[in-house]
Simulated assay, not measured.
Amino acid sequence: MKLTFLGTSAGKPTKERNVSALALEFDQQRGWYLFDCGEGTQRQITCSRLSLEKLDAIFITHLHGDHYYGLPGLLASKTLDSSVTPLSIFAPKGLRKFLESALNISEEHLGYNLTIIEYMPQEEFVFDKFTIKVLPLVHSKESAAFYIQENDISNRLDEEKLRHAGFEPSPLYGEIKRGKSLLIDGKKVDAKEFMLDVVPGRSIIIAGDNSRPDVLGSYLEDLDLLVHECTYTQDVYDKLERKLLHTTARDLGIAVKNGGVKNLIANHINPRYNKDNTLGTQLLYDEIRSAFDGGLFIADDFDSYYLNRDGSVSVVS
């Protein structure tokens, strides 16, 4: 499973970061999935190896502009690219009205089938390679996390063992996968004897804005990867005159440690943490690291990561 960050800034774009957008790709699958679509996401896609033609679905965590204002432009660009592949959008209630208004006013006629599903908390959706569950978060506007559980791989043949038993590749292999028993030297042998062990599916949570990472509770237990906002260090947050419902690096580190998360990628970085400021992202990293000793990354725009089968995370160069 590969994640590519197309926007990692909180609230507004900066010279270094665009606003929220994240691409997810599954192994050996043509299409890909977009999580959030802040303003300018369509341009970020053109600067990546991704293609709108292969985009299968978009998931919006909540209806704050930096997470969905990029949708009208992206939908129009897909039409201009002469793409006719269908597209689905999963979002909170209100997204349909927003898009219908924008498309009607601009007299935009999409050349493909667009399906909008306005989800409810705890709702589940089933896809070919995974299931996704909507988890409620704590924010100033209704916000969600998406718990993604990849399907187990359970139909792999032990071809080496089959050849050793005298069975070369043939239509028989398909029958074995379907559970047909074999007759070897006059003995009936269960087809299961020639199947490899099940490969467990990987698990990810991609969270929207959230002031309480611990609200994810049991879903954090043994989770392979959490992608979560990390808008402030604790010291900066404590000094804010107006407290916004966002996560601090300290609280995030404590939550993932207590929850048993294997890997964390922090994003949604406040613009004050930039390369031209003494408040760099290393401060965020260090504050999380003071509590959490698992795999830890602070995402920049266009960073790509691969979640391996063993639960580790690798940086994709």
Rank of each mutant, 00 (worst) to 15 (best):
K2P: 00
T4G: 03
T4K: 09
T8Y: 04
P13A: 10
R17I: 09
S20W: 01
A21R: 00
R30C: 08
G31F: 13
W32E: 04
E39S: 13
G40D: 07
Q44V: 09
T46C: 08
T46G: 07
E53N: 12
A57R: 01
H62I: 00
G65T: 12
G65N: 11
D66S: 13
H67C: 01
H67V: 03
L71P: 01
L71K: 02
P72K: 00
G73V: 06
K78T: 05
L80V: 11
L80Q: 14
D81W: 10
S88K: 10
L95V: 12
K97G: 09
F98R: 08
E100T: 13
E100F: 12
S101C: 12
L103A: 03
I105W: 13
E108T: 15
E108D: 14
N113M: 08
I116H: 02
I117V: 15
E118C: 01
Y119P: 03
M120R: 13
P121A: 06
P121V: 01
Q122V: 10
E123M: 11
V126A: 08
D128H: 11
K129Y: 10
F130Q: 01
F130V: 06
F130I: 01
I132S: 13
V134T: 12
K141G: 03
K141I: 12
I148L: 02
E150P: 01
D152R: 00
D152M: 05
L157A: 01
E159N: 03
R163K: 15
S170E: 07
I176P: 04
R178P: 06
G179N: 09
G179W: 00
S181A: 15
S181Q: 13
G186C: 07
G186E: 06
K188W: 08
V189N: 06
D190M: 07
A191S: 15
K192T: 14
L196I: 03
D197E: 15
P200C: 03
G201T: 05
S203K: 15
S203Y: 04
I204V: 15
I205H: 07
I205Q: 02
R212C: 14
D214A: 14
V215R: 13
G217S: 12
S218L: 14
L220I: 04
L220Q: 09
E221N: 14
D222G: 11
D222C: 10
L225D: 00
V227T: 02
T231R: 02
V236H: 07
L240Q: 11
H246C: 14
T248W: 05
D251S: 07
D251A: 10
D251G: 04
K257F: 11
N258S: 11
V261G: 05
V261R: 03
K262D: 02
N263E: 04
I265W: 05
N267C: 13
I269S: 02
I269T: 08
P271D: 03
P271Q: 03
P271Y: 05
Y273H: 05
K275C: 14
D276P: 04
G280S: 15
L283H: 10
D286F: 00
E287V: 06
I288Q: 03
R289W: 06
R289T: 09
D293S: 15
D293P: 08
F297G: 04
I298R: 00
A299T: 07
A299D: 05
D300E: 15
D301Y: 05
L307R: 04
S314F: 10
V315F: 15
V316W: 09
